[in-house]
Structures are given as structure tokens and as C-alpha cells.
């Protein structure tokens, strides 16, 4: 053992070792390089506001200094004014209420049906061999292609729009639910059976909570799909609704209103996603 060349630093309680550069045998000594770390991204606190402010600044500069034509992109303040006009005239709320009502109803119907069918696929051989092929065949069809058919069947009113949204929400929800049920630890099911728990209790107390993470991620995905379908359906035939607002603004070249409508859609998506994140945090507390 070589004598320490440097005395231990003052104030250190542990014995301080000097940096070794040569061993008694004369072989060179190198520090072990650090190779771990990384692959663990986290959200920086001011990342989101900074990004939005940066984008806003870029937009403002581009319109202010004439980098883009005012016909192509309105100024931020014009969009703000259009938004305020819409809000104060009450028109915005009329559009928003129509949209939220359709989205909410369509999503609830589609998600409930999807969850039930997904559970059936996950739990019964009969459902798995009949409903699963049906869901798989339905999933890739762009549901907006069915809207004309729904209009023929159900009329141009609310029902056809809600049906389109419900239909679009149904398949991703069914697939998420069935995947979630399949992923439930079978040892827990056997445990429940070994204690003589009835099937109903096993489904409610073991399978449902076990599938909950998958159900919530299904809810997240299907809500986004719902917003897409909502906008598309409102563009095809609606007097009120954010989609109708955006379309009519486009027809009138009122880009300020158009962009205001698009921002409302974005806010709607963000709100839904934040809401589901809050539910996840509460319901999945046990995972932490």
C-alpha cells in the first residue's frame, strides 16, 4: 500500500484517498469511466410555457415583419380579437356547447360499449371468436367514411354525428379493454378462485382494477380520436360546432376566426388529456 501523497482534506470525515496515478508495480492506473445514466427524460418546469411563448413570438415576428402574407396567417392580436368577439357575442359558447355535447355523448356511448365488448373478448371464448374478428375488421376503417351512411340511416341531425363519434371511440376502447384484461396477472385470478370468490367478484375486484391502466390509456387515445371525428363530422353538416365554425371561417377567408377555432380545438384536447391524467393519478395511486 503506497503512503498517501496528499493529506486528507480538512473537514472531511471519511478518509480521503489521493488520486493514484501509478501503482507500486508501475502499471498505469486509470479511473473507471462513468457509462450509466441517461435514458430517463423528465419534464423541465419551464419547458412548456417557454415553448409556447417562443412559438407565439415567432408567429408575431413573422406577421409583423411581413415574412408571411397577412392573407395566409393573421396576426396574433387579430386572432385574440376574433376570439374575444366570438366570446362576447356568445357565438363561441354556442359552438362549443354543441361540440362538447356531441363529443361527450358519443364518447360515453362508444367507450361504454367498447369496454363491455373488450371485457367479453377478454373473458369468454365465444366473444373472443366472434367479436374480436369484428372489432379487428372495424378498427382500420376511417369512421368518417361511414358518416354519409349514418346520415342516410339517421338523418343529418345530431344522431348521425354522435353515432360516428361513438363508433370511432368503440374499437380503440374495445381493443384497449381486451388487452388490459389479457394482461391481468392470472396468478391473482387463481388466488381469488382458491378463496372461493364468485366470478362476479373476481371480475369486479381483480380483473377490472387490473385492467384499469389499459382502460385509462384507451380512454386517452379514444378521446383524441373522438375530437378528430367530431370536427370532421361538424364540417360535413352542422350549423353550430367548432368544426362548423372553422369551416365557415375558411370559406369566408376569415383566417383570424379560423385560427381561433383551431386553438379552441387544441385547448379541448389538452383539457381532456389533463383530466385523464388527473384521474390516472388518483385511480392508479397504488402503482406509484
Amino acid at each position: 500500500m503506497a503512503e498517501p501523497a496528499v493529506p486528507p482534506a480538512e473537514g472531511t470525515t471519511d478518509r480521503a484517498y489521493p488520486p493514484a496515478t501509478a501503482s507500486p508495480s508501475g502499471a498505469p492506473i486509470r479511473p473507471v469511466p462513468f457509462r450509466g445514466g441517461g435514458f430517463a427524460p423528465r419534464s423541465l418546469r419551464f419547458g412548456a410555457p417557454a415553448t409556447f411563448l417562443g412559438l407565439l413570438g415567432l408567429w408575431w415576428a413573422a406577421t409583423q415583419y411581413g415574412w408571411v402574407s397577412p392573407l395566409a396567417l393573421p396576426k396574433p392580436e387579430e386572432v385574440g380579437r376574433a376570439f374575444l368577439d366570438l366570446a362576447t357575442s356568445g357565438l363561441l359558447w354556442q359552438h362549443l356547447a354543441a361540440s362538447l355535447w356531441r363529443l361527450g355523448l358519443g364518447w360515453v356511448i362508444g367507450a361504454a360499449a367498447g369496454t363491455v365488448v373488450g371485457f367479453a373478448i377478454g373473458l369468454s371464448s365465444l366473444a373472443r371468436s366472434t367479436a374480436l374478428p369484428m372489432v379487428s375488421a372495424m378498427f382500420p376503417v376511417p369512421k368518417i367514411a361511414l358518416l354519409p351512411l349514418f346520415i342516410l340511416w339517421l338523418g343529418i341531425g345530431e344522431v348521425s354525428k354522435v353515432a360516428t363519434i361513438a363508433f370511432g371511440v368503440f374499437s380503440p376502447m374495445a381493443i384497449a379493454a381486451f388487452g388490459g384484461v389479457d394482461g391481468v396477472d392470472r396468478n391473482l385470478v387463481r388466488m381469488a378462485q382458491s378463496f372461493g370468490m364468485p366470478t362476479r367478484a373476481i371480475v369486479l375486484k381483480i380483473v377490472l382494477p387490473g385492467a384499469m391502466p389499459a382502460l385509462l390509456s384507451g380512454a386517452r387515445i379514444s378521446a383524441s380520436i373522438g375530437i378528430i371525428l367530431l370536427t370532421a363530422a361538424e364540417m360535413i353538416g352542422a350549423r353550430y360546432g367548432i368544426g362548423a365554425l372553422v369551416l365557415s371561417a375558411g370559406n369566408l377567408m376569415a383566417t383570424d376566426q379560423l385560427v381561433a377555432g383551431v386553438l379552441v380545438l387544441s385547448a379541448m384536447g389538452l383539457t381532456v388529456s389533463k383530466g385523464i391524467a388527473a384521474i390516472e393519478k388518483r385511480v392508479l395511486r397504488w402503482r406509484a
Partner: peptide, 27 residues
């Protein structure tokens, strides 16, 4: 009458200790 204790414990992760013990009593 015939009750198992499993190698992997088979505890339900979303229930507390008391909740896990209560689980087979609830029905």
C-alpha cells in the same frame, strides 16, 4: 376449508395490507 399460500404471495397490488386480508371475506 382448503386455503392456499402461494410462492409469489399473490397479493393484490391496489389494496392495502388490510384490504388484501379482507378480500376473501367480502363475499
Amino acid at each position: 376449508p382448503l386455503t392456499y399460500v402461494f410462492q409469489d404471495f399473490a397479493l393484490v397490488p391496489w389494496r392495502t395490507v388490510a384490504g388484501n386480508v379482507a378480500l376473501p371475506l367480502e363475499h
